[in-house]
Design a protein around this nucleic acid. Structure first.
Lengths: 214, 214, 214, 214
DNA sequence: CATGAATGAGAATTCATTCAT
DNA sequence: CATGAATGAATTCTCATTCAT
């Protein structure tokens, strides 16, 4: 919607800004905020160091814009899935699948996100934390709504929604992370992996009709 | 066992070293390696900046010793549980419970570990990564062994062990992390939380005897 | 020869680099490597402390470049004299004179050289020693050649060349040093001083009853 | 003369002090004043670091006492020779020989002296320079006296005494230095080397057609 | 706008000196 | 006296930010 009114000049500017962000996200993801230098970003983005300051007012702002970008992507993705599914299972399945795909294609962005979540670098102003929390909250409220509906509809057992969601979020997140780290995932195996994790969460892993021998 | 033969001098030295490590782990956990300054560690540990160098040869060594400490703690804890349980369920349950307890009591240590795992700061020599990987491997081999046994004994479905373990490890880890972050856990609720997550993984969350209404 | 192709930027850079070296050599000569601080060099060269690092990667590199500069100057000077003289006497005379002139104009450089020769600071990597030794060797081989020729031509007595050269080198060096230290030498008196020392040394070794064949 | 009245306690104290100085001179000679640490001196002398301060008030004082020790040794040696010789030649010959012997046995002390002479470390208070200059002056006055006598007695040509002495001092010094550095000298070759250098210098300045009156 | 040289605040590290035991 | 742990001032080096071209 914003893009509508941009002149060529402005479009070019946006393009260059994006180039810088693309370069920066990779380095930030690899080294973290503090250990990343502007020299590195400048070199990777093929701009002069001074030029960066024509687009961003500080190193921190670059970081902030990257985080925003990732969060919005993710949020929009979830909203879209939310609107096109009915059951909790489908929501979880589709979301996880989409996340996996996104992460696979934007490994750096993903790591950066994880990294920032874990990392409470106070130097990186709490503003960033706030942005993340805000995005998180919107997503959460959607999932909670759907979970309650799933309980009501007897799709799942009557468990505390907060706990379930915490488990979903964290499990999915962590599992994806582990997969990416160890590298044994391709675009083809995504459907399969997604099914694996979603099904376990929904069905558990216990053998049903037999007694475990101890 | 080593402690037996330490003289008073040596014991005092060990004690002070530990004081420094205790101060350091908190700050490292909060800010990460790069963003933590020796001035801060010195202040928090109530030693002069130079004194730190009488106990550690560099900032990085402090970090390294902390990681080692945590890894060893964790590894020993798992081994102990492994030797005192038979089923996979019990292993997961006890391990998770013990981890939760440890994490609750050593929040900083836990965050630091997570942080280091996520963070591939190559600056922080790969030596640290190696240490972690070595510890990890030992633990993994124990869990894999037990998982295979569980499949053989029909305790659980015949799923690929690696995948299951990845899920356990990551889920447990992430769930604990999430719990700690949001702070709503006490020593009393540990048993309950542990049961919740272990049971879901084992049983799933789907309502069994009824068809979900969509 | 290199200078031909330098752009204005590059020439300016070289110029500034030289300014730094000029400032540094004075302080190094006065205080030695260890006792000289970058703050002093920065102040004397009228650059910011950080700026030095845009031109040199470390304090030691500044030192290294200075030594190289001096050695090369001196070596080239000797070679030139070697090629434009025939007798040992002339070689010694001209070299000594040229050295004296150089030293008078570059007192600091000279002291620094002496200083480094004396001083086997192993901290200052042995690389520097190696550079000096290499330069020295080239010069030595020229003088030895000429000395042997002088013996063959009966210009001087048949003494062990190594010993003679050691005497020349050390005497000349030390005499110059002493002169500079006590300051009673001007550009005008150089010819005279040179003749004084060369003649004494030569009267000590000259073949008496025969005419040197040239 | 001082030693006469020392009690056992005092003698022990002097002995330990000397042990420290002996250790220190080696390190100072090798690395220079700044680069030598008290830890090194403490280790080499096999005392605790704090103990050094029971004998010397500062690092600089250790240095100062060493220099004094060396200078006095040298001065006394010269005076002795002066009193037991008549001609300039003998004075130079004996002094050089004695110096060579001293240097060979106390390499470190010698290097330290050279080092300090060259090195105008202002950090090392000018007090040290003053001490050295004072010692130097006494020696100089003796040699000048003898040189004048030698001219009067037609032992040598009528050259400016100052210049001659400068040449002797510097030549001898530098030649010895060079010999020690390159290591090809033994106690046996001292007489020979001494004769070599003294003769050359003397052949350069000796009055030819007259017999020196003694 | 684009650039990169210049800068200085800040960080890690060293080491002479002090002092409690 | 002997000791070595504690200390902080001093030093080298890094890097975000500014600014003249």
């Amino acid at each position: 919607m914003k893009e509508k009114l941009l002149s060529r000049k402005e479009r070019e500017r946006e393009f260059k800004k994006q180039e810088i962000l693309d370069a920066a996200v990779k380095i930030f993801a690899q080294k973290g905020f503090k250990a990343t230098t502007l020299d590195e970003i400048a070199e990777k983005s093929e701009f002069g160091k001074g030029t960066l300051y024509n687009y961003f007012s500080s190193k921190e702002e670059i970081y902030k814009e990257i985080i925003m970008m990732i969060i919005n992507n993710h949020k929009n993705s979830i909203i879209e899935v939310y609107n096109s599914t009915d059951t909790l299972y489908d929501l979880i399945f589709q979301t996880t699948k989409k996340d996996l795909l996104f992460c696979l294609k934007n490994k750096e962005a993903f790591f950066l996100l994880v990294f920032t979540k874990m990392h409470h670098e106070k130097s990186t102003t709490s503003e960033i934390s706030n942005l993340m929390d805000a995005g998180e909250k919107e997503i959460m409220s959607l999932i909670i709504k759907r979970t309650k509906k799933a309980i009501k509809n007897k799709e799942i057992k009557n468990l505390v929604p907060d706990r379930i969601i915490r488990l979903f979020k964290s499990s999915g997140f962590a599992y994806i992370y582990d997969l990416l780290i160890h590298g044994d995932i391709t675009e083809e195996s995504i459907e399969d992996e997604t099914k694996f994790i979603t099904d376990i969460l929904f069905n558990g892993i216990r053998e049903r009709n037999k007694r475990a021998k101890l």
